[in-house]
Design a protein around this nucleic acid. Structure first.
Length: 257
DNA sequence: ATCTATTCCTGGCTGC
DNA sequence: TGCAGCCAGGAATAGA
């Protein structure tokens, strides 16, 4: 499931071959992938590839296409279209596909990112103090809060669990009850795990691959995510799994109190 | 403000 | 070997 590090990896792997290319043709088999009205893209140039939270941004001469990868979305460069291909962008050199088996992903045209928003700040672009203030203002449990894209953009289930473990914080604790010190540790844990994951080109838990079809390597370094019953790398206690907000939540009952 | 449940979807897994 | 049933969950939505 692509989150911030996976989206960043995809953006980086797309840039050298897609930035500056002209879109010769755009097709959307089934059309279900589109959210809202998609203008004619043929003839437009992809000026820049960006990332906004866990989404990929294809910046055009005017406006941009926001790619939400959902659970199983992938942007593939020069691959063969398959049964799950939802969009085909034929470029002046090469072809860019959007494949998405489960169809939780979508494409949306926006005028500008600034006008767009409604999303919280990027965890890698905020100070510990900003994070701490936002966090302690909320009377909701910290794990679901980290998943709330309006609170913070880019964090999903994997990195929420991994950051809470690094910060030694129980996912069930109410955010406003965290001390400034512990909130600061959570910020540090988030930044650390996201940067490490980017360095390892993301986590391939089920089917995530980058634009060249390559898997990430960070899944081997997960400390709690989907490791129920296995020993905590820090203390050896068995990792627990509970469900919060309909999401599997993994934590060490000894380290995280 | 914050909560939970539901919906979308299908590959991959379990168990018979 | 085949198949039914269940599970994973990002985000939108409804309702409490």
């Amino acid at each position: 499931m692509p989150e911030l590090p996976e989206a960043e990896t995809i953006a980086r792997s797309l840039r050298p071959l897609v930035e500056g290319r002209l879109i010769a043709n755009a097709e959307y088999p089934g059309r279900r992938v589109l959210r809202g009205v998609m203008p004619e893209l043929a003839g437009q140039r992809i000026a820049r590839i960006g990332r906004h939270g866990k989404r990929i941004v294809l910046e055009l001469g005017h406006g941009a296409v926001l790619v939400s990868l959902g659970m199983t979305g992938a942007l593939l460069l020069n691959a063969e279209p398959g049964p799950h291909t939802r969009a085909v962008f034929t470029l002046d050199a090469g072809v860019l596909l959007f494949d998405d088996a489960r169809q939780f992903g979508n494409l949306r045209w926006i005028e500008s990112l600034e006008a767009e928003d409604g999303l919280g700040p990027d965890p890698l672009e905020m100070t510990a103090q900003q994070f701490t203030e936002r966090l302690r203002a909320r009377r909701t449990r910290v794990k679901p809060l980290l998943l709330d894209q309006g609170f913070l953009r880019g964090v999903g289930n994997i990195y929420a669990d991994e950051a809470l473990h690094r910060a030694e914080i129980d996912p069930r604790i109410v955010a406003s009850r965290l001390t400034k010190t512990r909130a600061g540790r959570l910020h540090a844990g988030l930044v650390e795990v996201l940067e490490e994951a980017i360095a390892h080109r993301g986590s391939s838990v089920s089917d995530y691959v980058d634009a060249q079809g390559e898997r990430g390597g960070f899944q081997a370094l997960h400390r709690v995510y989907r490791r129920e019953g296995q020993p905590c790398p820090a203390c050896g206690a068995a990792i627990r799994r509970i469900v919060m907000a309909q999401r599997g939540t993994h934590f060490c009952p000894r380290c995280q109190r």
